[in-house]
Design a protein around this nucleic acid. Structure first.
Lengths: 356, 356
DNA sequence: CTGAAAGCGCTAACAC
DNA sequence: GTGTTAGCGCTTTCAG
């Protein structure tokens, strides 16, 4: 039983200085009503004893923990880890701690234990940094426990009475498609992600809409489904090659799958961008070093994470200071087109390569 | 002041059932000394009120939080995010919560506030999931506060009195080099990572040692330094092309830099693996889809994260149960060679491609 | 088997 | 300015 933390308590500080714990409390909370000299003596003792107030005890009595619950999934993937990166840096800045929980699966729906654990720790708010997949949002409007803390959800369509931060995937898809059309490609195929993902559906909807708007036909054999992996990109590309021989460009649902396309094209000597234009989605770090470098849509997931933290803290603070409560709203971030060689057929026009 | 959590307390449960809080406590802690019927009534009330014991209050009184502090850095990168992935899954399994802190910089040395924050939250142990870079370990043997909790460090050389889990980078480097030599390459260059990183130094040391052991000369113009980025890989490769024209293979310090090499080679029509063999390090997901697919060294960071959690919990439990304390030790995980086309010159021999 | 009392480390409310 | 009292939600003695 080595338990018996070496850390000093407020009582010890108080007794060393010869004041009440109250006075020490006032000093550590920077209250004005302490005489300068008492304050000094207390501060010295704190320094000397290396005293650090117990966050646990404080949270318990204040009913406020300055801790945020973060729920994520697929941390080994590019998007989720970047989002978490944004969350940590923003939380750090705001002085909040983070309690982290990773779901075993994106579509996980057994969320009661997650809530229980986070609530047991008295988090002041939560960030649900899991994208909408399948029915993994079906509980949002009838939460298991009546919460009195705000939750900000990431990556889902807007919804009544819900705080949301997303990146506009539909707009991103439109940017990709518009660019391909500008480059003079006529027969544009699509490789989608798994369609139980909201993001995959949005990107695909943009593909369809732009085709229609430009008087092209949308046919079922003009697209194939992948599962986000490079391997599935290869397979989808092979399928499209058979199904849609006129195809001269592909809007691919993410960069990993686009990578599979590029690899197979390279292997078969199919010249990109001349014979085939390729645009991806995500702008993963590697995409600038594919061969040829990949045109893609950048999503700023780090920013999304940061904004989520800022929003949830705004709500917490307003709530706590008794201000006008902040109405739930949906924030949509705008992605950006990154033009690289994989889609740049009109080189003659110049100036466009490298433009972001 | 909407504060006043909707959650029920032990007192409420007790009064609803008409027993003391004590009895409720016994039930939730699964103590044997409660009559079956009382237990049942209490359990029903708990169910009905949706009662969940406060982790805060429990931690405070037990002096034990079942929470681990995790310190990481560069979460937007491949390695750190995978490591964290392993940490979360293992902690989940063991029933521990995770308090997460991300350093703004790998070489960050101002760690006192980090410790204070984590200790204030009474974590039972810590995982320092930041690789050794520069002097960011200089404080390990003289910690700021006299801790009574264990810390497991990741990715650093073994050291007296310190719990460590690392992947054997030196061995990985030897595997890469041995493979290149087996493939008949004669003039093997190296692109290193930044040499203030321990991992970069280990990989480079392996390069040197194998060269020496096989009777080759180690010359300063046979290697170039990168900074882990693809861009730096391109630059280092260009430099080597000038400095070391006989070069017929490169052992590259990580996959990202190798990707830069591959891209430039592809651009210049330099045939890989015939004219140039390339081996990377890390086995990032994309490396199988580079062109050509990249031979590399796999590091199982997820496993490293898992083991770190298991180790720290072992120490905590032993400590708490008053068992023989567990001696600090260093655990080295073995990496694996993944052979792909970028280094496979002896195709005639067959059977080797795809072998792991 | 069950309850009463004390207290983990801290702060809010009120005295003086 | 400063101290006293009470109590956040729980568990650990120790009675009975």
């Amino acid at each position: 039983m080595l338990r018996k933390t070496g850390r000093a308590t407020i009582k010890e500080v108080a007794s060393v200085v010869g004041v009440s714990t109250q006075t020490v409390s006032r000093v550590i909370n920077q209250r004005p009503d302490v005489s300068p000299e008492t304050r000094k003596r207390v501060q010295d003792a704190i320094e000397r004893l290396n005293y650090q107030p117990s966050a646990l005890a404080r949270s318990l009595i204040r009913q406020r923990s300055f801790t945020l619950g973060v729920v994520t999934a697929g941390l080994n993937l590019y998007g989720p880890s970047r989002t978490l990166n944004g969350i940590t840096s923003s939380a750090e800045e705001a002085g909040y701690s983070l309690l982290l929980k990773e779901l075993p699966d994106f579509a996980e729906n057994n969320i009661v234990p997650i809530f229980q654990m986070l609530l047991a720790h008295q988090v002041d708010g939560m960030i649900w940094a899991v994208p909408e997949v399948g029915d993994n949002r079906n509980w949002v409007n009838r939460l298991p426990l009546n919460l009195d803390i705000p939750i900000v959800y990431l990556t889902m369509p807007s919804r009544e009475n819900t705080y949301i931060v997303s990146i506009n995937n539909y707009l991103g898809g439109r940017m990709a498609m518009t660019h391909l059309i500008d480059q003079g490609y006529k027969h544009i195929a699509h490789i989608s992600g798994p369609l139980d993902w909201w993001e995959a559906r949005e990107r695909m909807a943009a593909w369809k809409d732009i085709l229609k708007e430009t008087g092209r036909e949308v046919q079922d054999n003009h697209w194939a489904r992948g599962n986000w992996s490079s391997e599935s990109g290869v397979q989808a590309f092979e399928k499209l090659n058979e199904q849609y021989p006129e195809m001269d460009a592909i809007f691919v649902g993410n960069d990993q799958m686009a990578m599979g396309v590029l690899q197979l094209a390279c292997q078969r000597g199919l010249r990109i961008p001349d014979k085939l234009g390729v645009v991806g989605f995500d702008n993963i770090t590697e995409s600038a070093y594919f061969w040829p470098p990949l045109t893609t849509i950048q999503q700023d997931q780090i920013k999304m994470g940061k904004i989520a933290v800022e929003e949830v803290i705004k709500v917490i603070e307003a709530n706590w200071q008794g201000l006008e409560p902040i109405e739930p709203k949906s924030i949509m971030l705008t992605p950006a087109l990154i033009v690289r060689q994989s889609s740049l057929r009109k080189r003659g026009k110049g100036g466009e390569f490298g433009k972001e």
